[in-house]
Nucleic acid binder design. Structure first.
Lengths: 169, 169
DNA sequence: GCTAGAAATGCGACAAAGTCGCAATTAGGC
DNA sequence: GCCTAATTGCGACTTTGTCGCATTTCTAGC
């Protein structure tokens, strides 16, 4: 995979800046991320690693993933309804929010400049210094509303900055 | 407690409309909610019930709470950083978002009409029918930013629609 | 290349959160 | 008060996440 070496580079820079080491397991974690879909949990990473014939211990991943988050490679989200720890790739992607369809389970990534601005204003009003934010809107996507079969949307041209990232898990 | 009987009424109406029963345990759950703070988990409800000398099984609460959510009595949130299931009272309170302080752990409820409007616009653009939404902004509150001792804010008059609902758990 | 010391890993045990099937109990219409 | 379906308690189980410790593996210095 091509993107992964760039990502490994980013990780290495981060680790060095902290006096930490770039180990086999950490590189593996980055590759596993590439192999995963848009949203994944730690067990998914473990499975991806195993699929490559490599094994990592769960505890190790639980220790590694926060580093990837700090390095900006991953971003923690709770996109789906369930409150399991979920992550998504965070590199080179602008911030975005999630529209989660309650019927087909699809997760649609959207971004809105106006929204960002409004959030900034809100924070300013409360003297709050934002580090990150997460907006999740649950409801029904266009296809599920119109009673069409869920899945239609995937065949339609994307609109604006919306990306459909996941079907039902 | 005064509010609880009104809430029980609301629950009863909901249950009847579904052909379900208003049981001792469900009433108890509502009372336990009243006894809890702004944000709580299922174990908190269990503890609140026990404090009244009544006992409910965990599994029962896990079955009851989703009903309370459907009835509009509770609302599911993940206000704090951890991804444990958390709830807050949902009755008669306008929608609000959360500013979560990473230093003192306080959770500040805010609401912004402009934000709501922006979200509505976003949904409309994607043909998405929103059912609910949740915005969580993590960062540092005014007091923690200014390096004052965390906790100062509680003594200051509240501004606008901000409500401080929780300290570190 | 070798060595020492620190960092990282694997392991297993544990805790917390949540789910499930089943037998016993109970609400509520008659 | 009786009857039946809904509800509950129970306990066993899964999943998710954490921790301490012994072992392994980096890296720097020689």
């Amino acid at each position: 995979m091509k993107g992964s070496s760039a990502t490994v580079g980013q990780l290495e820079r981060f680790l060095r800046s902290r006096g930490l080491r770039l180990t086999r397991c950490r590189k593996l974690a980055v590759e596993a991320v590439e192999a995963c879909g848009a949203h994944f949990g730690i067990e998914d990473l473990k499975a991806a690693a195993r699929a490559k014939g490599l094994r990592v211990h769960r505890a190790t991943l639980y220790r590694t993933v926060p580093l990837l988050v700090e390095a900006g490679i991953l971003r923690k989200v709770s996109a789906s309804g369930g409150d399991r720890g979920e992550y998504e790739k965070g590199l080179g992607r602008g911030h975005h929010d999630h529209l989660l369809c309650l019927r087909c389970g699809r997760s649609i990534e959207v971004s809105s400049v106006a929204m960002e601005r409004e959030q900034a204003r809100l924070c300013a009003r409360h003297g709050f210094l934002a580090v990150d934010h997460q907006l999740r809107i649950r409801g029904y996507c266009a296809d599920c509303r119109s009673d069409g079969q869920p899945g239609d949307a995937a065949r339609r041209p994307g609109r604006e900055s919306a990306v459909i990232v996941a079907g039902r898990r």
